[in-house]
Nucleic acid binder design. Structure first.
Length: 569
RNA sequence: GCUCCUAUAGUGUAGUCCGGUUAAGCAUUUUGGCUUCUCAAGCCAAAGACUCGGGUUCGAAUCCCGAUGGGAGCACCA
């Protein structure tokens, strides 16, 4: 054992002991040595003996002695350790080359976009951006019964609001002819067949892992039946199934549907087609022909990966790399139309943009900024662990964006009158933001103010308060209405500083406070709190949608001239 | 029922692939302090975690086996 390594051991031992109140342990030093000097991994026994000796000798030293030795021999170890580096952004992609990544976001236009859509869109677009690639928006419109132009438009508006940019925008239905062509190819090669069984029987056979008699028909018969699907068969009478494996553990592989008959009117192409590809088939083909290199979808599609690959393999088509992430949902905020629709019908929520909902429209209305949503989603990472997202964290991101350019206004809740004698000021200029230059506003005043009930309650007669931006007031009378005297050059420190509104110009508004919609699966009857408050008349000058911070209350978004929505504290 | 996925502080995550250089990093939350003519923002500090049980190894959050908790799929929805 050479002196060099002994010295190294002594150095690390001293460092570790010094960092941990003068004591360290053999195991830890061994780990550190082997970590930095892998060549000793074959000589663990020898080195352990050395370490053991050195550790016990160092542990015997007092912390001062350790420090002294470090100062003399190894002053370099006193510099603080570098912190663990946090990975920036999303994890790297497998099989990805700069410039060659193409991702996509394929929403079905069957509802209003929500936070879940935002996650899928942001992750996929972020990867395209990260690799200097392309990003495709593909409206996945293969079920005319469910899809509407209204939703199509809403999704585009929502994505635009989020600031997501696309290189290509298309619809799955653009490629109907290709689906037919590929479908024919599968039928001709015997990899797909027309099944005329009843829905229930198909389901039962799937569970029992049994093939049905249709699967045994020959190619000619299948071609013949395919022809009949175009006009003769009614919806539900025949489907095209992929020849997967009825015995497979993965239930998705048990001869899934490729095409079915739907007679509804499609929102863009009308009644041109009556045979529609299923999701699995359409996505597989589209991703392949669109050149998608990496496709991320939420976790519930995980079992589809095998099927997607099987379909593309049997057509000898290029396959994308697939990835999955957990669904994003907020606690007590339903995402599914199945739950929201009845709430609207029962008038428990106003519409899909009700601020208690996690739709993009609602989040916007509530005062959440798109940048905050992006940061928040990125902070969640690409995990598959299912979680209920922390709304707290979204609010924290949002607060940072909103704080910078929210105008500060005075607002009083549960107003109480305060009359101040000897008050001669007639107007005052108040800064719109404490640090950023957002101009000033002029407020006309006389001696009559409103202050908030909460503040009024806490004031005692004979004490001073400061009306923010105005001056000190000595309270001379407490009660339902307060009285006070103006104090010139009063002390600013250590007295309550409160916001106020001038009685003569006070403007009444309603603030609505959205709260959690469901508590333990039950609708929260108190999910929308309303407050009638007075604020400064300057509120009327603000644009609709502008974010405000009501001083000592919180951030709100102006909804209309007489209503604001509480964003968060 | 069968199959698959998943498990790190109150919450969300990094680290796990490829065991050691990390007695576990960040954010949020909470609490304290500084700053401030806001209970905001900003700055500083504190608190707080590897689901459990075995195994492999000199060494396990990391690898293996098992258990348990949570989620998903088994649609002619996507």
């Amino acid at each position: 054992m050479d002196e060099e390594i002994k010295k190294e051991i002594r150095k690390i031992t001293l460092q570790n002991a010094f960092e941990h109140e003068g004591e360290t342990r053999d195991k830890i030093i061994l780990g550190k040595i082997l970590g930095t000097k892998p060549e000793f991994r074959t000589k663990v026994k020898e080195i352990s003996i050395q370490i053991s000796e050195i550790v016990s000798s160092v542990n015997k030293l007092s912390i001062e002695e350790q420090k002294k030795e470090i100062d003399e021999n190894f002053p370099e170890i006193l510099v603080p350790k570098e912190k663990i580096k946090e990975r920036e952004g999303l994890p790297e992609l497998k099989n990805a080359q700069q410039g060659n990544v193409i991702t996509r976001f394929p929403p079905e236009p069957n509802g209003y976009p929500h936070i879940g859509h935002a996650k899928a869109a942001i992750i996929n677009s972020e990867y395209a951006k990260m690799y200097g690639g392309k990003f495709i928006l593909r409206m996945d419109d293969t079920n005319p019964e469910a899809e509407r132009m209204e939703y199509h438009a809403a999704i585009k508006v929502g994505l635009e609001w989020l600031g997501i940019e696309f290189d290509i925008v298309k619809s799955t239905s653009d490629d109907m002819e290709i689906f037919y062509e590929k479908g024919m190819e599968l039928i001709n090669s015997g990899k797909a067949y027309v099944c005329k069984c009843k829905r229930d029987d198909i389901s039962k056979n799937r569970r029992e892992r049994k093939a049905c008699k249709c699967s045994k028909e020959d190619v000619d018969k299948n071609i013949d039946n395919w022809g009949k699907m175009e006009s003769k068969f009614k919806p539900g009478e025949a489907i095209v199934r992929f020849r997967g494996d009825m015995k497979a553990d993965n239930a998705v592989m048990r001869d899934p549907v490729l095409f079915r008959i739907i007679e509804g009117k499609h929102y863009t192409i009308g009644e041109k087609y009556r045979i529609w590809p299923s999701y699995d088939f359409a996505v597989a083909i589209e991703d392949s022909i669109d050149g998608i290199t990496h496709a991320f979808r939420s976790k519930e599609f995980e079992l589809r990966e095998e099927l997607t690959e099987a379909i593309l393999d049997s057509l000898s088509m290029r396959k994308p790399q697939q990835g999955f992430f957990s669904r994003l949902e907020f606690k007590g905020m339903p995402i599914s139309k199945r739950i929201i629709k009845p709430l609207i019908e029962e008038r428990k929520v106003s519409w899909y943009d009700d601020p208690r909902l996690p739709t993009l429209e609602a989040l916007k209305k509530r005062g959440i900024k798109p940048e905050a949503i992006r940061k928040f989603i990125m902070s969640l990472g690409l995990t598959k662990a299912n979680t209920l997202a922390p709304f707290d964290s979204l609010e924290a991101f949002n607060r940072k964006f909103v704080d910078e350019d929210s105008i500060r206004l005075y607002m009083v809740n549960n107003p109480k009158k305060l009359s101040v004698k000897n008050f001669s000021i007639t107007s005052v200029e108040i800064s719109n933001h404490p640090v950023n230059d957002m101009g000033k506003r002029k407020i006309d005043v006389n001696g009559d103010f409103y202050i908030s009930g909460e503040d009024a309650k806490n004031i005692k007669e004979g004490e001073q308060i400061r009306l923010l931006g105005l001056g000190n007031i000595l309270i001379t009378k407490q009660g339902e209405e307060l009285e006070g005297e103006y104090v010139k050059d009063g002390d600013i420190k250590n007295i309550p500083k409160i916001q106020w509104v001038s009685q003569k110009t006070a403007h009444q508004i309603k603030i609505i406070i959205p709260k959690i919609l469901f508590i333990d699966e039950k609708f929260n009857e108190d999910s929308l709190e309303e407050m009638n408050v007075y604020c400064e008349p300057h509120y009327l000058q603000l644009k609709e949608g502008e974010e405000i911070q009501f001083i000592r209350f919180g951030y709100c978004r102006k909804d209309s001239q007489n209503q604001a929505i509480f964003t968060h504290k």
